[in-house]
């Protein structure tokens, strides 16, 4: 190892943060750019499935809460793009990567939101799964990413609580509302578990990510945490657990559960989900339609600068 590499690994081992101007292995930088930008893209794309229900929210309070929540997602995207830009990539480049398909976003957002109950299910299960992952990421080795995650975690628990509250109201409501809640749970439970990614043995980036403390816990460990915490939550709702094989294992101290349908996982990631194309098309359309606005902004500012220069002369 070169002295630089040694110094770098010393910081990693001592749980010291790596900051933007520090020397870092090129692969560490690349890994982080991939992970942080994809995390950011997920937040932004995630605005769409939930944003889908803002105009149809069934009460004023729910409308306001959902709007705040979606706005928060946008804000989280912003914090993460901001952290990523410290690594030498621009927002422009990241947008290009997302829109061209070069960069991915969390595949959960390739699923459609079909009923109001889906909004609650997403807040509860999808944000719930994200929280399990993000709490772990607060200790990630790269400073700006870690600080971004701490900020996000502070705001995230509101997301899960509002989702759970929304679906609780349905589960305790009329038979039709309860049926709607059950249907949403059935459709989102498995995809939420898939958010933790494939088994670590099959994940290409896992090993290096763990070594460099970008990732702090394995996919399977995080998934297990989520399965465990969700059992009680489903019980309180009075809904049926989608996994007929869920069973407490005294020896392990965890719930045993069915293995996931990995065919579905890969199929959706590879383009067969209901919303894969739509999510990107929406993002592209908004961005393209916004071009004349961004151009106007630039032009106006140029004129202002020119005027100022003239007055100073």
């Amino acid at each position: 190892m070169t002295p630089q590499e040694e110094n770098f690994m010393r910081k990693i081992e001592a749980e010291e943060k790596i900051e933007p101007k520090d020397w870092m292995p090129e692969q560490y930088r690349k890994n982080l750019i991939r992970q942080i930008s994809q995390h950011a893209h997920s937040e932004v794309i995630g605005m769409q499935p939930e944003g889908n229900w803002i105009t149809r929210a069934p009460s004023l309070r729910r409308k306001a809460v959902l709007l705040s929540k979606v706005q928060d997602e946008a804000g989280h995207g912003l914090y993460l793009y901001s952290a990523c830009e410290t690594l030498g990539i621009s927002r422009s480049e990241m947008i290009e990567q997302l829109q061209s398909g070069k960069a991915k976003y969390s595949s959960i957002f390739n699923y459609p939101t079909l009923t109001w109950a889906d909004v609650g299910a997403i807040g509860w299960l999808v944000d719930g799964a994200a929280i399990v992952n993000q709490v772990s990421l607060q200790r990630t080795s790269y400073g700006p990413y870690s600080r971004g995650m701490i900020r996000i975690c502070k705001e995230e628990s509101f997301h899960q609580r509002q989702g759970y509250e929304a679906i609780l109201a349905l589960a305790k409501g009329s038979p039709e509302q309860k049926a709607m809640a059950q249907d949403a749970l059935d459709r989102f439970y498995w995809p939420a578990l898939m958010m933790f990614g494939p088994h670590d043995s099959e994940s290409a980036h896992s090993q290096k990510s763990m070594e460099w403390k970008i990732k702090r816990e394995t996919n399977d460990d995080l998934r297990q945490k989520f399965v465990d915490q969700t059992v009680k939550q489903i019980e309180v709702l009075g809904l049926d657990h989608p996994d007929k094989n869920i069973k407490w294992n005294e020896e392990r101290g965890h719930y045993d559960s069915s293995d996931l349908n990995w065919d579905e996982f890969w199929s959706v990631i590879n383009g067969n989900g209901h919303c894969n194309r739509q999510r990107i098309e929406h993002h592209v359309a908004a961005h393209d339609e916004g071009e004349w606005v961004r151009d106007a902004l630039s032009a106006y500012n140029e004129k202002k600068r020119a005027k100022k220069a003239q007055n100073a002369a």
Binding site: M47, Q48, L67, Q71, A74, G75, L78, A286, G290, R294
Partner: peptide
């Protein structure tokens, strides 16, 4: 609120959303 996720760039999307929230608050 119809502008959420359709804004010309992220910062504007967030900011305009705040205005919508203010009006919904007033309505309530």
């Amino acid at each position: 609120s119809e502008w959420v996720s359709y804004g010309p760039f992220l910062e504007e999307d967030i900011a305009y959303g705040n205005v919508s929230l203010d009006y919904i608050g007033r309505a309530r």
